[in-house]
Design a protein around this nucleic acid. Sequence first.
DNA 1: AATTAGCACTCGATAGCCTTGAGTGCTAAA
DNA 2: TTTAGCACTCAAGGCTATCGAGTGCTAATT
Lengths: 345, 345
Amino acid sequence: MNDLTERQRFLLSLVIHEYVRSAMPVGSKHVVDEFNLDMSSATVRNDMAVLTDMGYLRQPHLSAGRVPTEDGYRLFVSNIVQETDLPDSTRRTISHQFYQMRQDVEGWTRLAASVLAHQSRAASLVTAPHPEESRFKHIELIAARGRQVLMVLVLMGGEILQRFITLDEPVTQEQLSSAADHFNNLYTGRNIEDMSSDHTPLNTLEQDFRKSVLDEMESAESMISGDVVLDGLTNVLAEPEFSAPGEARRALRVLEEKPLLNEILSKTVLHSHSQGGVQVLIGGEGIYDALSQVSIVLARYGTPGLATGTLGVLGPMRMPYGRTISIVRFLSSLLSDMVNDTIVE
Amino acid sequence: MNDLTERQRFLLSLVIHEYVRSAMPVGSKHVVDEFNLDMSSATVRNDMAVLTDMGYLRQPHLSAGRVPTEDGYRLFVSNIVQETDLPDSTRRTISHQFYQMRQDVEGWTRLAASVLAHQSRAASLVTAPHPEESRFKHIELIAARGRQVLMVLVLMGGEILQRFITLDEPVTQEQLSSAADHFNNLYTGRNIEDMSSDHTPLNTLEQDFRKSVLDEMESAESMISGDVVLDGLTNVLAEPEFSAPGEARRALRVLEEKPLLNEILSKTVLHSHSQGGVQVLIGGEGIYDALSQVSIVLARYGTPGLATGTLGVLGPMRMPYGRTISIVRFLSSLLSDMVNDTIVE
DNA sequence: AATTAGCACTCGATAGCCTTGAGTGCTAAA
DNA sequence: TTTAGCACTCAAGGCTATCGAGTGCTAATT
């Protein structure tokens, strides 16, 4: 496939491996020596010339070794790379950490981000699980100071929304509790549409709250992902490609600019090269300038239709893809299990 | 004070201003020209020699200009600097942003971090408001899948804790609701001690939950601060002192390593140089190696005894202290007002 | 036909050397 | 006490020479 001989693809993978390891252009002789190849450097040279012509390799300077191009990485990831499985002991350790966290939903995302960052030695991002459809589970109304009320809204799936509401006139906790009870009896299990079309008579206070509840549920539904938890940003700073002034900044900025990040998280599902559920976005793909030096390995987790989230890793394009993909896949399935085991329905 | 003449202190402040601006060693002639001083460079030179002898300035190389030392910055911050107030228009814009966020408690900390980062052009950190004492306000028990129960615990002050609990046997939502009601009647407004010494008879299920509630409240109380929200990490990467390989990493790592960060947040209240409520930690103060290149400007906000949080800025030691202190102070008072206006009690 | 040895060539990186100039400390005059 | 004057220091920048890893091409070898 792709007009490449088996040997050329093999050599491409060797060059990528070596470049990932050393971060320096890889020469023909170097490859032969390093991997004890049973051919001469001239042979390698010829094939490398072909790979360069085809756009998979590139020479930084005319007299230096070869470096993989974006296309080279892409070919490698989609056709050549094989995942390097995590050692069993590591898998067990991680599973155990999550088991101990099973009680603390908020802790999951933080733990996932932390584990991803450590294992991949890159920056990680994890969004909390988020239901695709907002369905009412439970409401609690709590009197705060003055005419303020704290509304705590629990959705099917376990998501908790909280919001302050300022009323026109003060009310008692009893009135609030009664309104909450009323809602809980009326709406539990129903989605926005259901609730909108319901015309059970409500008193003025309740009508106010009903509007707030619907508002909140709608904004929850339209949100693609909840908070993004980041970790390991400093890992990226250790990479040599980001020692040039401004490069590190450009790369990490992607993670701090929420609009851009959200766009990438939502679009990437379509645009990128998939590896059985794990998405790999290599170097901006000509679309995102800010990503020109980095790659992102992403996966969704959870149960489609119910609650899903996204998790992934951002690192230099010069990244150990086999290993990273394997880590992301493992954590994705682990988190899916967590979500499924404890989902509120 | 401090054996320094008025002029020497004045010159120190000029050198710091100029160094903060240019990031380059400041020479005697440069100071005279830049600020149109009515004295000769030789005079400045003499005073700068004195300041150097006293340890407030330093020469990177024997033939270059002067750079402030940690002690120099400290003297400057504690005796010389005057705050540069934010323009009224900026203050109003910020106040308005917070006003629009008034309903969304979780949004406060994020907004505060974002504003801090933008205004100070450095990295910012904000912890959510956290009550010093855990007092029970409300509990909600929600059946999840299998024998799992989602416990939602609201504390006085508005903090919401959520946790999954696995029971030995399945129970109905009715049983859960009844237990929750019981707790709400029994414990509202009471603290841990109160609750521990209460011996109202409870059924087995309720005893289990009571233990979980107390556990959770205790761990909330012992937590010094909630989640730390970070923003603007990439701002720091633009600073020239962090272009040296590894320096940026060392500086930002402080923010990613939670144990270290927590230690600093808690200890700093005592150890550092205060500016009327705003704490300034300059260059690790010989204690924290990781901070040797950076300064942190911190303030607590909220109401002591009720709920408090911490917010601040981390930037290069070469930082516009007057401006930064003023920003931190402004946001601290703004957040304090927010907390006081909407506190749940 | 594919592989390999041989070779001339390219060009970034490193080292050495020189010049430049901003900044210094000191001394003597104002 | 301040300032003018001056000799001195030393990093930074420019120039040149050398080095060597790596290349592409051609001709010989398998």
